[in-house]
Amino acid sequence: MIDEHDATLQRVFDERLLGVLPPPRVPRRRSASRVVAAGLAVLVSAGGFAFAADVNGTADAAGLSCADVLAKVEIWFESVKNATVEQQMQFKQKAAELVGQTCNAKGEKVPLTNKPVVPGSDPMIKPAPQMSPECLAAQERAKQMAVEAQAATRAQELELKQRINEMLGVPCGAK
């Protein structure tokens, strides 16, 4: 096989690429796209944890009667956790409204404010549940577990929530 090499073309390459001077070799620069991607990842993670903290706080304030609402919120969150930041923020707002409208600070379910209330009819307020000692103990254990799992990953956090829901389900009679 003849190793054909065009000397004229070689000279063209040598002459015309002479001006292409490499920059001094330095450690990798952080490109804008990498910074944006890292920032987005931090925002999404922080948003997720902040949202979880909000939901947990609301759950603590609202008591066990709202466990079913929180379960719904969690399932709902699963569907939007990979969505855009804007969609997650929108979801967070809606979820906070839902929990806030459904449960008051005493852990009582209250009717949604946009529901018409017929004068003279019984309001849809359920009496505050009487918590059994087992339920209170389970709730304490759940709080302790939540405190211990501060540094847990998202998957571990979800698993913990499921375990807590199961743990509270029987003694507290949550649906």
Binding site: V20, P22, P23, R25, R28
Partner: peptide, 25 residues
């Protein structure tokens, strides 16, 4: 080989920034 490979990447169509990044890799 840095200058030669840098020119080769530019000749392939890379921008100066991309060529420097790829060489760093």
């Amino acid at each position: 080989s840095y200058p030669k490979v840098y020119r080769a990447l530019i000749a392939l169509g890379a921008s100066p920034e991309d060529a420097a990044d790829a060489l760093q890799d």
